[in-house]
């Protein structure tokens, strides 16, 4: 299991508020996630799993401790540098899909490439490629309102992978979907992990969803309570 570490927490603390009202969302977390891993983060609400995920996705920074992403001290970068890092290496999938309304699937998928300054021909080509990967060929001109929940989440996944990121961060990706749709999305994520070698960090509170991951990290009260790996089936 001596994989190249992609994500490394070294005594990471995240504290909100001042004095009496101080709350520790993370209390000295140490963890390492290697390239190509598919990790589920579980835990009750308030356990710090969302905070950990925001730091992993370079949306947030630790109050103290060190967070290395790709060997870069990402916790010390300013917000615009972290924006560049997210744009280049991180894809996001949210519970509520978070697609731009009244904007076609293709345009939604192209969005991260716009901030990269890619020319429109290349953007369109890559968006179509990503939509094909998530099984949405032919839906590129539909707006979110014209798509089902499962289809919307596929568009969101296409948007996340269109930049060919190193890391995919998924926040309760199946939270708004029924069981059948949830398993379809999980199959898709598993395929992306296996075929593209995409590292996936997924927050969930459903055990059957977490079961798709190779490794499950349990959070409780701002600390890691458990870290279990699925036995490799030969």
């Amino acid at each position: 299991m001596a994989r190249d570490p992609l994500i490394s927490f070294d005594k990471v603390w995240k504290t909100y508020g001042q004095g009496e009202a101080q709350v520790h969302a993370l209390s000295g977390v140490d963890m390492t996630i290697g390239r190509g891993e598919f990790v589920a983060i579980m835990g009750p609400s308030g356990s710090g799993k969302s905070t950990a995920m925001n730091i992993i996705g370079c949306l947030d920074t630790p109050t103290s401790g060190r967070y290395d992403f790709l060997g870069i001290d990402a916790g010390r970068l300013d917000r615009n540098r972290r924006a560049v890092l997210r744009n280049l290496y991180v894809g996001f999938v949210f519970q509520g899909y978070n697609l731009l309304p009244r904007t076609t699937a293709a345009e939604n998928v192209e969005l991260p490439l716009i901030y990269r300054g890619a020319p429109s021909g290349e953007r369109h080509e890559r968006a179509m490629e990503a939509l094909e990967q998530v099984g949405l060929m032919g839906r590129q001109n539909h707006t979110p309102a014209e798509l089902s929940g499962g289809q919307q989440q596929r568009v969101a996944i296409a948007r996340a992978i269109v930049t060919r990121p190193t890391l995919l961060v998924a926040d309760e990706p199946t939270g708004n979907l029924d069981t059948a749709r949830s398993h379809e999305i999980m199959e898709l994520l598993t395929t992306l992990n296996a075929e593209l070698g995409l590292t996936i960090v997924m927050v969930t509170h459903e055990a059957d969803i977490a079961a798709y991951a190779q490794r499950t990290i349990g959070f409780l009260d701002g600390r890691i309570a458990s870290d279990t790996r699925k036995l490799e089936v030969a």
Binding site: G57, A83, V84, N87, N98, P112, Y115
Partner: peptide, 16 residues
């Protein structure tokens, strides 16, 4: 606000 959040998350700079 939500749209701005999405754009920032997927890599928009402040200046964008």
């Amino acid at each position: 606000t939500r749209e701005i959040g999405i754009r920032l998350a997927i890599g928009a700079h402040e200046k964008h």
